[in-house]
Computed example of a mutant assay.
Amino acid sequence: MPLSPDELAQISALTLAHYQSSAEDFREGTRDHDVSQNIAALLRHIEAEKPWRILDFGCGPGRDLRTFSGLGHEAIGLDGCAEFVAMARADSGCQVWQQSFLELDLPAEHFDGIFANASLFHVPDQELPRVLGQLHAALKPGGVLFSSNPRGENQEGWNGPRYGSYHDLERWRARLTATGFAELEHYYRPPGLPRDQQPWLASVWRRIG
């Protein structure tokens, strides 16, 4: 049964309230996470002339904005959590937009790359085609989308105070290709472990059309 507008609003509000109340703990807990594999996966597929304009979609406290900016690119953050937005602006010096994932307002054909690291899984599956379409439209033709999500068996629901959708590769691939993306690569994380110890599915996609 489809989620109603009121249910979607509640999903967004409660998930963001969790991050708002735990922002400092989240920043400290993720400060040293090594996502260099993911950043490299996005950057190696962008074909435009440098410097690139990159949207960090769900930028959190701004850790990866500093990395992209330090590499000489124009990094712009986006997050729905007001506390994360303030942290990211202060820590990175980058432009950061406060927007809910379910109420995006993005410029058309603006970005060379979009880095959606541990963020798109918060979008309910019924809304995913719309949100992916908005990201597709925000990329320049040929632009690249990176995503990393906790994988699952195509279930969704509340995980404590946060809502999440947990896709397998086949469902995720179907959602992206239906939106107008071509798959460039995928892999599981953390690297070097047996598959049952790799809870994250990372994938890279090029905008076509």
Rank of each mutant, 00 (worst) to 15 (best):
T179K: 09
G133L: 09
A138C: 05
Q98T: 01
E127Q: 11
F111V: 00
H136L: 00
V131M: 08
L14A: 11
A90D: 13
L42Q: 09
G142P: 10
P199S: 13
L104Y: 01
H186C: 01
P61G: 02
S119F: 01
I11M: 01
L65G: 03
L102N: 08
I208H: 02
A82W: 12
E109H: 06
L139R: 00
A108R: 05
D25L: 15
W172Q: 15
E49R: 10
E103V: 12
Y188S: 03
S148C: 07
E47T: 10
L16Y: 08
D32R: 11
E153H: 03
H33D: 15
L65Y: 06
A178M: 00
Y19C: 02
D105A: 10
I46N: 10
S203T: 12
S165L: 00
F121Y: 13
A48P: 06
R44N: 08
Y188D: 09
S12D: 14
Q98G: 00
G80L: 01
W172F: 12
P2W: 07
A178H: 05
L145V: 01
R89H: 07
R151L: 11
Q155V: 13
A108V: 14
P107I: 03
A108Q: 11
T179P: 03
L139A: 01
L16G: 07
I46G: 09
A17F: 08
R89V: 03
P2N: 04
L14S: 14
W205I: 13
R63L: 07
A9Y: 02
F68P: 05
R31D: 05
V123Y: 01
Y187A: 06
A41K: 13
L176P: 10
R130T: 04
D32E: 09
P124K: 12
A17E: 12
R151M: 10
D6F: 05
E83S: 11
L128T: 04
G60R: 07
A88N: 03
H186G: 01
I76V: 15
E170L: 15
D34W: 00
D91A: 15
G133T: 10
H186Y: 04
L139N: 00
P150H: 13
R162K: 02
F26A: 01
A75L: 02
A202N: 07
Y166H: 09
G93P: 13
A86R: 15
H73G: 06
P161H: 01
T179C: 09
W205H: 08
T67W: 12
E103A: 08
L43K: 13
N38D: 11
D56A: 12
R53G: 04
L102R: 11
E109L: 05
Y188C: 05
V123W: 04
A40Q: 06
E156L: 02
G157T: 12
A9V: 11
A17M: 08
E103H: 12
R89Y: 09
L16I: 15
R31H: 10
E7A: 15
S119R: 03
Q155N: 07
G113K: 04
D196T: 14
E28Q: 15
D25A: 15
P194I: 08
L16K: 13
R189T: 13
R175W: 00
F146E: 11
L184I: 06
N159D: 09
V96T: 03
S69R: 06
L201M: 10
T179Q: 00
E7Q: 10
E185H: 12
L3M: 09
R66T: 07
L145H: 00
A23W: 02
H45S: 12
